[in-house]
Amino acid sequence: MNITTILFWFLSVVALFSALMVITNKNPVYSVLWLIVTFFAISGHYILLNAQFLAIVNVIVYAGAIMVLFLFVIMLMNLNKETEPQKNRWLRMAGAIAGGCLLLVLVAALKDTDMKQQLAMTNGGNIGLIKNLGKELFTTYVVPFEISSILFLSAMVGAVVIGKKE
């Protein structure tokens, strides 16, 4: 069992555990913090897959910007354990069962696929490096890239319009 395998299992366990904590924790602030842990674990996976650029972006954008935004909002509303709305038990059970069924079905459906022998390259391959991705991004994908800036602009305008007091 080499270090890569150990790291993979460790990161997987961390990701799954923290994801579970996200949905089970009663306090929204804790949920946000656990989600950040999940994102870090996923970033770890990216590094394991030698996708360094995405790992960094994931940490900066998701764990950094987006989750902080969430945190701000939650604190702004002063949400805590006491104000957390609770579903009735049967509905929660139904939801858990439905999600479990989906998991079961997907796993059962995919476990016999012929991709069993395929490997995902870890610790190697340089396509995940900033240099290569950047080259591709500013040549082949330059138009979508520019358009995404317009998307940001419109999202910003939208957020301002929705958020301002009338």
Partner: peptide, 18 residues
């Protein structure tokens, strides 16, 4: 799939929009 399913279960069981 596991992460995705956890996400779905979260959507189904929680009432807090955030």
């Amino acid at each position: 799939i596991a992460l995705f399913a956890i996400g779905i279960v979260g959507v189904l069981t929680r009432r807090n929009a955030i």
